[in-house]
Design a protein around this nucleic acid. Structure first.
Length: 671
RNA sequence: GCCGCUUUAGCUCAGCUGGUAGAGCACAUCAUUCGUAAUGAUGGGGUCACAGGUUCGAGUCCUGUAAGCGGCACCA
């Protein structure tokens, strides 16, 4: 007999060979039906896996949503694999994990069949529902490694056969058998799984897309065909999720950018942005704001060359590692003859800067720097070019020309922790000003391929840890965690991840402790002792790039910018043409008060104008008709406000809006 | 760069098995002066991404190129 302790403190005696399912049945039929899996001594296990000793047991039901979703999604992946092999014999199975909203499974299509396409998905969904409908038991079996390999070899499953031989020693190798006597399907899987496929809700999943994916994530390996699905505990959750996806699609920055006439992209300059007047107004407001914050933070702004001799990039170490992503420009005047050679072949090579750091070091090296000058904070809104892999480009989020809010802080080792902590505070201020309440901080640690000694890395990583601790932000509230292997090749980095209005996260800010580049480019300062010393260089950005950050702002606000950032802050719309003169006067006064205001005097109904400016996401709509013109008032309609309108005397309206439109760093707080 | 899909008017899209291009919105003109999310009429607008090929005939079929989209990989 085993003693099984339950969460309520009670203990049940169960005979050997009994399972958590038996315990559930003993407690009651309702629980037996609801139980999906079991937590045995803290480990999630199959509900039908027998106890091996006395144990603490907690039964997992749909109420334990996190565990239940993970289990269910993993099962859906399993069902997907079985369905695909039923439909398309000869397809090899590989991997199929749960994801944040569902699951995927990677297949190697049968020879001659080619990858799966979206058109295959309905058929596969149907077959999955049949597998679920058959309510096939999922049975865990422990196998010998070689037996698994031989089994899969016989099936022609080379990927699984390869994989099983590399599983860590010491863990039991488990196979899951699904189906009944007449139909058997086996998969190598650590589990756990639900007791049977019938535990899944056949209406709670949807196959969403197909894609290619490299076997084990390595481009040197074959490309597999991946099928993605989203999966939930029930139909209602699935419907809610699909609605969330639609909402996210509505705030897509590319769509809103077109609708609000902010920017466009076109083939002739793919990966670079054409900013339209309204989009560039947002940029200018954001840049002006950042410049004020940096000025107040003791930064000095500089501007450095777009083109530099390739040899400079060799010295910095970027040429060797990133040349294929740099735009190379020959320093040569091409032949004026139409037939003449464009390049002589021995032209001096130059490169468009992919980053600003080496140029900042070159400024630092001009003259002699004393320890008294440190820390020296050098900022640049630096326009950089990187020839990104074409498949990576994405709207404003990943582009080939971008402007970083870059800065480099040259400091002494003993100043480093304080400088990093100051940066964290500045960044915190900026994110809150820009409407983000929540962000996470991660520490990316040394990668396998790197410059510099282990001692240097130990020290750099520890300084960043200490600095975050000094600001008290190394907590769960800030999602603090360390990411092994994620650092840059020359430095560990702190990453700052924003959470937007619909819960997505975006890595934007960063700060990196670099001792390699000052060494390579021989930057020095004169210390108190009169000797030359090596400064530490902090690379840091708060927004990352203006392009991407504005993309994030668009999606975060769904185009409804806070007043100070809105490209058009107010439109004065007339009801009758008799009010035209008054409308012009109102607009002129708004502009005189520093607001970006347009008039709409068109011969259209007010309904039409209200609709149009609402869709254009103009924050303030000032409606004027005969009445307002006579009384010197405006009828104010605020975007997204429930109150239809508010009558205000003109002077009061202007004073109110002018105060509301002040950027957050310029707001005068009372007292 | 890799896998799949897509590319028709400024935008969103329709165009069946090949027979020579359509809608709504937008734009222009006219009428309408109408108090809070679309007033009506008329009109202009397309080398069907680009380059080849098959065919009596190609938006439609085939090949290549480019860009876009969804992923993978990459992201100093």
């Amino acid at each position: 007999m085993f003693k099984i302790s339950l969460p309520d403190g009670s203990v049940r005696e169960m005979p050997e060979g009994s399972t958590p399912a038996d315990v559930a049945a003993a407690i009651g039929p309702g629980l037996a039906k609801a139980a999906l899996a079991a937590r045995v001594n803290g480990e999630v296990r199959d509900i039908t896996r027998p106890f091996e000793e006395d144990a603490e047991l907690a039964l997992i039901t749909a109420r334990d949503e996190r565990d239940a979703l993970e289990l269910v999604r993993h099962d859906f992946a399993h069902v997907l694999a079985e369905a695909v092999q039923n439909l398309y014999p000869g397809t090899q199975i590989t991997f199929g994990p749960a994801t944040d909203d569902g699951f995927y499974y990677d297949f190697a299509p049968a020879p001659g069949r080619g990858p799966f396409t979206e058109e295959d998905l309905p058929t596969i969904e149907e077959e999955m529902r049949r597998v679920i409908g058959r309510d096939e038991p999922l049975i865990r079996e422990v196998w010998q490694r070689e037996d698994v390999r031989d089994f899969f070899r016989r099936q022609g499953e080379s990927f699984k056969a390869e994989w099983v031989m590399e599983l860590p020693k010491g863990e039991p190798i488990t196979m899951y058998r699904s189906g009944k006597a007449d139909h058997n399907w086996l998969d190598l899987c650590r589990g756990p799984h639900l007791a049977s496929t019938g535990k899944l809700d056949p209406q709670a999943f949807k196959l969403t897309r197909v894609s290619g994916a490299y076997w084990r994530g390595d481009p040197a390996n074959p490309m597999l065909s991946r099928i993605y699905g989203t999966a939930w505990l029930n139909k209602k959750q699935l419907a809610e999720h699909l609605t969330r996806l639609e909402e996210a699609a509505k705030r897509d920055h590319r769509k809103i950018g077109r609708e609000m006439d902010l920017f466009h992209l076109q083939e002739e300059a793919h990966g670079s942005i054409f900013w339209h007047p309204k989009g560039y107004l947002i940029w200018r407001e954001l840049e002006a704001y950042m410049r004020r914050r940096l000025d107040a933070g003791g930064y000095q702004e500089v501007k450095t060359p777009q083109l530099m001799d390739a040899r400079q990039w060799e010295k910095s170490g970027h040429w060797g590692k990133y040349r294929e992503n740099m735009f190379i420009v020959p320093d040569e005047i091409p032949s004026g003859e139409d037939e003449g050679p464009v390049l002589s072949g021995d032209a001096q090579l130059m490169a468009l800067k992919p980053m600003n750091c080496p140029a900042h070091v070159l400024i630092f090296k001009q003259g002699i720097t004393s320890y008294r000058d440190l820390p020296l904070r050098m900022a640049e809104f630096g326009c950089c070019h990187r020839n990104e892999p074409h498949g990576a480009l994405h709207g404003l989020m990943r582009v080939r020309q971008f402007t970083q809010d870059d800065a480099h802080i040259f400091c002494r080792e003993d100043q480093l922790v304080e400088e990093v902590a100051l940066f964290c505070d500045l960044l915190d201020r900026v994110y809150h000003d820009l409407g983000f309440d929540k962000y996470a901080i991660k520490l990316a640690l040394r990668p396998d391929k790197r410059f510099g000694s282990d001692e240097m890395w130990d020290w750099s990583e520890q300084s960043l840890r200490d600095a975050v601790a000094a600001t008290g932000r190394n907590t769960a509230e800030f999602g603090w965690e360390e990411l092994p292997g994620e650092g840059a090749f020359y430095a560990p980095k702190l990453e700052f991840h924003l959470t937007d209005a619909i819960g997505r996260t975006w890595q934007v800010g960063t700060i990196q402790t670099d001792t390699v580049l000052p060494e390579r480019l021989d930057a020095t300062y004169v210390g108190e002792d009169g000797a030359r010393h090596r400064p530490v260089m902090l690379h840091r950005a708060i927004l990352g790039s203006f392009e991407r950050f504005i993309g994030i702002l668009i999606e975060h606000h769904a185009g409804r910018f806070p007043l100070w950032l809105a490209p058009v802050q107010a439109v004065v719309a007339t009801i009758v043409s008799d009010a035209d003169g008054y409308a012009e006067e109102v607009a002129a006064k708004l502009r005189a008060a520093g607001l970006r205001a347009d008039t709409d005097l068109r011969n259209e109904k007010i309904n039409y104008k209200v609709r149009e400016h609402s869709l254009a996401k103009v924050p303030l709509l000032l409606v004027v008709g005969k009445r307002e013109a006579e009384e010197g008032t405006v009828a104010v309609r605020r975007l997204g406000s429930d109150d239809r309108q508010q009558m205000m005397p003109l002077d009061e309206a202007i004073a109110t809006f002018a105060a509301e439109a002040v950027p957050p760093d310029l707001v005068r707080r009372p007292g």
